[in-house]
Design a binder for these strands. Structure first.
Length: 420
RNA sequence: GGUGGGGUACCGAAGCGGCCGAACGGGCUCGCCUCGAAAGCGAGUGAGGGUUCACGCCCUCCGUGGGUUCAAAUCCCACCCCCACCGCCA
């Protein structure tokens, strides 16, 4: 939710900001409803003030004056019974429409409507050169016996896999590596609930915008989270935290569930686009004045993680049209996949500014003043896609795949070997 | 699945339908006292919104939503959430 005061104070500013993400059709309607609401609010409050005044006089008045005093108060009471529902309807409509307003893009966000207009900031790391024909990750995975897609389909349908043998160990190793790295940087490890209430989904910003993408458990009225961001953003809902304790940093681990609606036929092989995958996520509650510094910190952690694993990548700044509803800015890191000959999104970092905090009412208090915090999130390790990048970049002529040095401590092996 | 008990301000905890935004205790802040601290004493201490250049004024909030009434923390209805115990269970 954005601050509706902005619509009153500087509608043109809001309009210009939204233009960078393709515009928001209902903007003027929201602004008009807001004006109407305030008009009615003043009317209702004045009536209530009058009613309160009259009511207070009743017990003080002489018994013989009571009937007339009550009759007088009743006139106002009846009038309020007409005005209040009307105000309420206006407020409901306003809230409903306003909940579709996305966050305002930061000034540094490039204009654009689709991912074609995202901006590649730079490329980091050397693309590997092979003196043999490199294999794509799906083939490698099969050869190495680290996942089993056929049986995943048998059990759960397409886009589900079994991670097997060294694949399972590799996953746990990556998770632990990421958690340890962040633990040294002030992030408290958290394993989050994956079934969440509607309120958590709404507050994070995935509802109402991304409803199609989310699994819902109708019977128990719960949703399956697509990222631990949901539970982490919801963690301090309705709380006022001591400003001196900011930033609050969490390294969330969870299994994530995504419907991948509308992606039929896309990335059907391997570990790229699954309905279920595990991820370690950075999440920060920041003071609003320093949230862009915190954003840089999250981005730096992401780069260090990729560099430690010797994965070449590029930094992509999302254009306005490619931002999620909660994002004021979003930057992805895309790993280079030499055999597939393309880049693959492996991390994403978002500064949600006060958008989520306003919905969740997460505040801070410092020097006697209180305000909304800023929330930020960024992938630390999306396990499946990280494995994809490791496989393609570290494959060797004999069909094996080298494990990067920092990870060996966790895996206990130095390479993945082809089975039989 | 069953049975109970609860949701009041930063925390704990009272609260006859009418100066109740709410006693009291703790905490916190600022004073006094002190060489300094503790203790003690005194004062203060919620949030959101509307309006105003401002001082201020006004409205709302006692889990949520309805209802009764001139007037609801208080009475009525529905719902949500939390806790405890029993059963089942990784």
């Amino acid at each position: 939710m954005i601050d509706l005061k902005l619509l009153r104070d500087d509608l043109d500013f809001v309009r210009a900001a939204y233009a960078r993400r393709g515009g928001v059709p209902q903007l003027d309607e929201v602004a008009e409803l807001d004006r109407k609401r305030r008009r009615m609010l003043v009317e209702v409050e004045n009536a209530r003030a009058e009613q309160n005044r009259l009511s207070r006089l009743i017990p003080l008045s002489a018994p013989e004056d009571r009937p007339s005093a009550i009759a007088e108060a009743k006139v106002i009471a009846d009038r309020l019974k007409e005005l209040e529902p009307e105000l309420e309807r206006t407020e409901e409509e306003l809230t409903r429409l306003a909940s579709y307003l996305p966050n305002l893009p930061d000034e540094s966000v490039p204009s654009g409507l689709s991912e074609e207009e995202n901006v590649v900031a730079r490329e980091v790391g050397e693309r590997p050169r092979f003196d043999f024909e490199p294999l794509d990750h799906a083939t490698l995975g099969r050869n190495l016996g680290i996942f089993d897609a056929e049986r995943g389909v048998k059990t759960s349908g397409s886009r589900f896999v079994y991670l097997t043998g060294p694949g399972a160990v590799l996953e746990l190793s990556l998770v632990r590596f990421a958690i340890d790295m962040l633990g040294g940087r002030g992030f408290t490890p958290v394993i989050t609930p994956v079934l969440v209430r509607e309120r958590a989904m709404y507050g994070t910003g995935f509802l109402p915008a991304d409803e199609r993408e989310i699994y819902k458990i109708e019977r128990d009225d719960l949703y399956l989270a697509g990222t631990s961001e949901v539970a982490l953003a919801s963690m301090h809902a309705e709380e006022t935290v001591d400003g001196a304790r900011l930033p609050l940093r969490y390294a969330g681990f969870s299994t994530n569930f995504r419907r991948e609606a509308g992606t039929y036929g896309k990335d059907t092989q391997g570990l790229v686009r699954l309905h279920q995958f595990d991820k370690v996520e950075q999440f920060s509650y920041s003071h609003p004045d320093t949230s862009w510094d915190e954003y840089d910190f999250i981005l730096a952690n992401q780069e260090e993680f990729l560099q430690a694993l010797e994965i070449p990548y590029r930094v992509v700044v999302m254009c306005g049209g490619d931002l999620g509803p909660m994002a004021a800015k979003k930057i992805d890191h895309e790993a280079w996949l030499p055999a597939s000959d393309r880049f693959l999104e492996v991390t994403s970092a978002t500064n949600a500014t006060d958008y989520q905090a306003r919905r969740f009412q997460t505040r801070f208090r410092a020097e006697g003043k209180s305000g909304l915090v800023h929330t930020l999130n960024g992938t630390a390790c999306a396990v499946g896609r990280t494995i994809v990048a490791l496989l393609e970049n570290h494959q060797r002529a004999d069909g094996s795949v080298a494990i990067p040095e920092p990870l060996r401590h966790y895996t206990g092996f130095e390479s993945l070997q082809p089975i039989s």
